[in-house]
Amino acid sequence: MAKIVVPKTPARAFNPNRPPSDLLRKQIEHLEWALLPAAQRHPKRLRANTVRTEGQAAEYIALLTERVQQAYAGRHGARADAGPDEYVQLPKVPKAPAKRKAAKPKAVRRPAAKRKATTRRKAAKGAKATGRRTTGRGRK
């Protein structure tokens, strides 16, 4: 019996911040469609297009799935449920998780002595024009 080792997927493949595919947007639309009574299925009410990231889509899909299941339970006596004419409020789209920003490298001022001659000349010229004194650091 051959044992086939399946490599692990690298952690960097995980990207909940990528924009949701058409497929995920349609999945949301279908769940919203299932939740809303026929008379309330106006395109303006659907929120699929407000979802910005895949992670956000997943959170919203979970809320919608739960609501669809609750609605079924309601129709079958587990709880009081909205009648066909009652206005159904869609769940709020969860906020997209904050993007992790790469830490900015600290700004390091290069020693003046290592500035190029052209840079020194430009700095001196600029100071002259504005009447500002140059420190003279780095000059012999």
């Binding site: 990207n15 909940p16 895949e54 992670g55 997943a58 899909i61």
Partner: peptide
């Protein structure tokens, strides 16, 4: 059905 999204 497989997992359709990267999520937590």
């Amino acid at each position: 059905e497989p997992n359709f999204s990267d999520h937590e």
